[in-house]
Simulated assay, not measured.
Amino acid sequence: MNPLSTYIKESPFLKEIGEIALFTKRFFKEIAKPKQEYAEFLNQCFWIGYKSLILVGVTGFIMGLVLTIQSRPTLVEFGAESMLPSMVSVSLIREIAPVITALICAGKIGSGIGAELGSMRVTEQIDAMEVSGTNPFKYLVVTRVMAATLMLPVLSSLANAISLYGGYLGANIRGNVSWNLYWFQVFNVLNYGDVLPSLIKTFFFGFAIGIIGCYKGYYSQKGTEGVGRSATTAVIVASLLVFIIDLIAVQITDLLGLT
Rank of each mutant, 00 (worst) to 15 (best):
W47G: 05
L258M: 06
T232F: 07
L169S: 05
L22R: 13
Q44N: 13
I248V: 15
Y168K: 02
I62W: 06
R229G: 03
T259C: 13
I48D: 04
G112D: 04
E40S: 10
K33Y: 04
Q125E: 15
S163W: 00
M87D: 05
A21D: 08
E37K: 09
P85I: 11
T149I: 10
P3W: 06
G110P: 00
I162Q: 04
M120T: 00
E37V: 09
A80V: 15
R72M: 13
S52F: 05
L84K: 00
S220W: 08
G107D: 03
T233Y: 12
T232Q: 09
G60V: 01
E37M: 08
C105K: 01
G213R: 01
A249P: 03
A159L: 07
N191F: 12
A234S: 12
T149F: 08
G118S: 09
T123H: 12
L65N: 01
S132D: 10
E10Q: 15
N172S: 07
G49F: 05
P85C: 13
M129W: 04
A171L: 14
G170V: 05
G60E: 03
P85M: 09
D246C: 10
L75I: 11
T253A: 15
L199Q: 03
L84H: 01
G213C: 05
P136H: 06
L14Q: 01
F184V: 14
Q221H: 13
I244L: 10
T202K: 06
A161V: 04
F203Q: 13
I162K: 02
P3I: 06
L103Y: 05
I209S: 08
I104T: 12
Y165N: 05
L22W: 03
K201P: 07
L181Y: 06
L65K: 00
A147F: 09
L241C: 01
L190I: 10
T232W: 07
I209E: 09
N176A: 11
C45S: 13
S220Y: 09
V76Q: 15
E116V: 09
I17R: 07
